[in-house]
């Protein structure tokens, strides 16, 4: 609740200002043309928001991936969003719309949602209920691939960066060693998030860690090891990922 009408920085004289995204308002603070002072609102322009092309190549790209192979099936009934666990928590998280934007190759629109798009919890309710077995849960994985390729700069933003960093830890462990060390995952992630201090500094964390050390579970992690001959698998996987020729390709 606000006691005053929210005032925008640019284009503040436009009555329906909140119906325009900030980045579509162009305004020069100080400007003189032909000897006339047209500073501020006198030179404000609003950019249009028209979609003037459908980029089908984008659709084809997604269709080639394992997770996005069923993108052509979606008919936008909205069952996925209606079922979604995350949507009630974050209204802007809308799997149906994300799939649609990917179908039409509407990167411009998609980009606006990058900040929530990664929040899928992978509960597969959408996939369970989708009448056309589009598998929206995995489509969100395809979305992550799209974000990675087309908006790499967005990955630098905090929430996404953490998601990406944690994914990298998983990746290094699983592909590198063939097995997952949960303790290391936890500590590694905390470090990436800049929360290492909590590990022993916070009582709740400390209690759990001490408990696991005491009952021996913490040390069992050390004995997990690597499957024999995993290096062969690793090599094969690396080769595959280099030559896959789709969005999934690792560079």
């Amino acid at each position: 609740m606000l006691n005053e009408r929210p005032v925008a920085e640019k284009g503040e004289h436009i009555i329906a200002r909140h119906l325009i995204e900030d980045d579509r308002i162009k305004e020069e603070k100080n400007l003189v043309i032909d000897g006339v002072d047209v500073s501020g609102r006198w030179n404000t322009f609003i950019e249009t928001r028209v979609d003037s092309e459908y980029d089908r190549s984008f659709f084809e790209e997604i269709k080639k991936t394992v997770v996005g192979s069923r993108i052509n099936r979606c008919w936008q009934c909205g069952m996925c969003t209606a079922s979604c666990t995350v949507t009630p928590l974050y209204r802007r998280f809308n799997p149906r719309a994300f799939i649609y934007m990917m179908q039409l190759g509407n990167l411009k629109e998609l980009k606006k949602y990058v900040d929530v798009a990664w929040r899928c919890v992978g509960c597969y309710k959408c996939s369970q209920r989708c009448p056309k077995q589009v598998n929206p849960a995995e489509m969100m994985e395809a979305l992550a691939l799209v974000v990675k390729k087309y908006f790499p700069e967005e990955l630098e933003k905090k929430a996404l960066k953490i998601d990406e960093d944690v994914k990298k830890i998983y990746e290094e462990m699983i592909l590198g060693r063939g097995r997952l060390d949960l303790a290391k995952l936890h500590t590694g992630s905390m470090r990436k998030m800049g929360r290492s201090k909590e590990l022993l500094g916070k009582k709740i964390e400390r209690d759990a860690i001490f408990k696991m050390i005491k009952d021996g579970r913490a040390f069992s992690v050390l004995r997990l090891g690597t499957p024999p001959k995993w290096h062969n698998s690793k090599k094969a996987i690396d080769k595959y990922l280099k030559n896959i020729g789709t969005l999934e390709e690792s560079l």
């Binding site: 004289h13 436009i14 322009f45 609003i46 950019e47």
Partner: peptide, 14 residues
């Protein structure tokens, strides 16, 4: 008269 921001954008762009 009062919101030429919209008018001029429309005129030039559209």
């Amino acid at each position: 008269l009062t919101e030429r921001e919209a008018s001029r954008s429309f005129v030039m762009d559209r």
